[in-house]
Computed example of a mutant assay.
Amino acid sequence: MSSIAIFCGSAPGKDSVFVENARKVGETLAAQGKTLIYGGGRSGLMGVVADSTLAAGGRAIGVMPESLAEHELAHPHLTELHIVENMHARKIKMSELAEGFIALPGGSGTLEEIFEQWTWAQLGIHSKPCAFFNVAGFYDDLLKFLRQTSEKGFTQPRFCEALIVSNCIDNILQQFEQYRVPEMKWEVPELEWVQQELAK
């Protein structure tokens, strides 16, 4: 597994532990020779992960919609920067480039991105692992809610079990290498266009 997508906040958060762990993620990706795939921003945890990856000699590839790039929010020193039409194209491009997805602490955008990839995995659009880097218990309540969706019959247990959760980035990456794809939920012919976009 040579490329990892990181979803995280465009703000640094109010606790230095978030920045410290974002820096550790970048350093670890670089040390393991894995390319960082992320949203292309220079601020918040996004910028920290990119900066630490590059400082450690790693590769960082950003994917940013035109509207955000026009506001000069793009990181200026990336290995590559892909400017795409909109947010939907951004997620498709990131999914195409990455072999696994990790959510660091962040807000609604981070959640939207990781949940879409997790949903695509359930539908068989891709077979890549998804993980929550649970820094300082940041995702504890969310994970409790996801277990409830399974207990109440809205999420099949195998999909919750397939989510990788750890407060250690090395552990997450190790589990990625051992990932076993759960049986998909069902075939979804109307989503074949997504698969076609990812195959380009």
Rank of each mutant, 00 (worst) to 15 (best):
residue 63 V to F: 01
residue 6 I to N: 00
residue 118 W to K: 03
residue 152 K to P: 10
residue 192 E to M: 13
residue 77 H to D: 15
residue 192 E to I: 09
residue 94 M to F: 09
residue 193 W to T: 15
residue 79 T to V: 07
residue 13 G to K: 00
residue 191 L to P: 04
residue 44 G to R: 03
residue 83 I to P: 05
residue 165 V to H: 08
residue 25 V to A: 04
residue 134 N to W: 05
residue 148 Q to D: 13
residue 54 L to N: 03
residue 16 S to K: 13
residue 176 F to M: 10
residue 71 H to I: 14
residue 98 A to Y: 05
residue 74 A to N: 13
residue 140 D to I: 04
residue 124 G to I: 02
residue 179 Y to T: 08
residue 113 E to D: 09
residue 199 A to Q: 14
residue 63 V to D: 01
residue 87 M to G: 04
residue 157 P to I: 01
residue 142 L to T: 07
residue 145 F to I: 12
residue 52 S to L: 00
residue 132 F to L: 12
residue 198 L to Y: 06
residue 126 H to P: 01
residue 43 S to G: 11
residue 69 A to E: 12
residue 155 T to A: 12
residue 139 Y to T: 03
residue 25 V to K: 00
residue 3 S to Q: 06
residue 79 T to Y: 05
residue 41 G to F: 00
residue 148 Q to Y: 13
residue 110 T to N: 05
residue 182 P to H: 05
residue 107 G to M: 12
residue 57 G to D: 11
residue 75 H to Q: 09
residue 12 P to C: 03
residue 29 L to A: 02
residue 87 M to S: 06
residue 18 F to S: 02
residue 33 G to Q: 03
residue 130 C to N: 15
residue 38 Y to P: 07
residue 75 H to M: 06
residue 41 G to Y: 05
residue 194 V to C: 11
residue 145 F to M: 15
residue 70 E to H: 09
residue 111 L to G: 10
residue 115 F to V: 11
residue 157 P to R: 05
residue 21 N to D: 10
residue 25 V to G: 04
residue 91 K to I: 06
residue 51 D to P: 04
residue 96 E to M: 09
residue 84 V to P: 06
residue 198 L to T: 08
residue 115 F to A: 13
residue 92 I to W: 14
residue 35 T to S: 12
residue 39 G to T: 01
residue 96 E to D: 12
residue 146 L to F: 12
residue 29 L to V: 00
residue 14 K to V: 08
residue 174 Q to L: 12
residue 177 E to I: 08
residue 123 L to P: 04
residue 184 M to H: 13
residue 193 W to I: 15
residue 186 W to Q: 15
residue 17 V to T: 11
residue 122 Q to G: 01
residue 30 A to Y: 00
residue 169 I to M: 01
residue 120 W to V: 03
residue 175 Q to P: 11
residue 50 A to G: 04
residue 177 E to D: 14
residue 128 K to Q: 14
residue 200 K to E: 11
residue 84 V to S: 02
residue 19 V to D: 05
residue 93 K to L: 07
residue 28 T to D: 01
residue 148 Q to F: 14
residue 36 L to Y: 02
residue 189 P to F: 12
residue 103 A to E: 07
residue 149 T to C: 11
residue 27 E to V: 06
residue 86 N to A: 06
residue 3 S to Y: 03
residue 144 K to S: 14
residue 190 E to L: 13
residue 39 G to K: 02
residue 5 A to R: 01
residue 8 C to M: 05
residue 143 L to E: 09
residue 70 E to P: 12
residue 92 I to Y: 11
residue 152 K to N: 11
residue 119 T to I: 10
residue 122 Q to D: 08
residue 87 M to C: 04
residue 160 C to N: 15
residue 53 T to C: 00
residue 69 A to C: 10
residue 15 D to H: 09
residue 6 I to K: 02
residue 81 L to S: 07
residue 127 S to P: 10
residue 171 N to P: 15
residue 24 K to W: 02
residue 134 N to M: 06
residue 170 D to W: 08
residue 19 V to I: 08
residue 163 L to T: 04
residue 55 A to Y: 05
residue 7 F to Y: 12
residue 78 L to G: 07
residue 70 E to S: 11
residue 34 K to W: 00
residue 164 I to F: 02
residue 129 P to W: 09
residue 72 E to T: 11
